[in-house]
Amino acid sequence: MALFQTVLGVLLHGLAYAMVLYLISVGLSVTMGLLGIANLAHGIFAMAGGYLTMTLLSAQGWSLPLALAVSFLGIATLGAIMERLLYARLHGASELDQVLFSIGLIFIGTAAFQYVFGPLAIRVSLPAALRGAISFGEFSFPTYRALLIVSGVAVFAALWLSIEHTLIGARVRATVENPTMAKTLGVNTRLLYTGVFALGSGLAALGGSLGAELIPLFPNYASVHLASFLIVVAVGGLGTIKGPFFAAILLGVADTACKLIAPDMAAFFTYAAVFAILTVKPNGLFGIAK
């Protein structure tokens, strides 16, 4: 029984962490697949969203749903503006230029947040309703983490349904597959790029906000967690909704399990596994060969 509880605990805690990773990374995966831009600075959107939500919660005393909605919309708008003004210029730029550009954005973002909020991680104040735990007999699980799992799965389901079963989704899929063809078929790819980028940024903001207790918000957030986000995208495969979902679960649960069994070696095993997976399957586990 104790073993069962441990396993269940690892699974659920891993899943909660995985959903945060998913929310943040899915936008990165889709924009990379769609725009072909290696946007290493994607974490900035998650961080900005997290900071915005926490400020609205603690300084303004807003309710969590309202703060999340404003943060989502605010960062999505920011994403749209940045796509139009900056990222649009990177289409067809060399890989090196994309890497340099996004590293530059990371530096700017890091400095800006450090200037405004100071160098330390900010305190996360959860609403009272989320501070408790849900219990099933002897097993209990934090309400907040349960919310993470529910939101992650809900976002995944919504994205998956809209990509697979709506017209806009079909356009996105067509554009990932063959942009020139999609354009000739009358898809407004320019608008689509901006829209998808905005959505991806908004979701990252959601992930950064909801995940703030698991992944603390501090100015170096975007560069420190860059590897995790990129790994989810690469292992999952570019340009899909499903790929990063399962990759995030794999990574989240494995990481949580490793931390329990061999805490010192967790990071080592994770990187070794990623190295092995990508060496064997360079397009990721669920990726389409391009």
């Binding site: 990379m32 290696a38 890989e95 890497v99 860059l226 590897a227 990129l230 790994i231 995208v233 690469a234 570019l238 990071a267 080592f268 990187y271 070794a272 990623v274 190295f275 990508l278 060496t279 360079p282 397009n283 990721g284």
Partner: peptide, 19 residues
């Protein structure tokens, strides 16, 4: 690492470094 290109190469090289 050199079996791959693009994003996979970026991440493999980063994974090697972190490893």
């Amino acid at each position: 690492i050199l079996r791959t290109r693009g994003l996979a190469l970026l991440i493999l090289s980063l994974a090697l470094l972190l490893l």
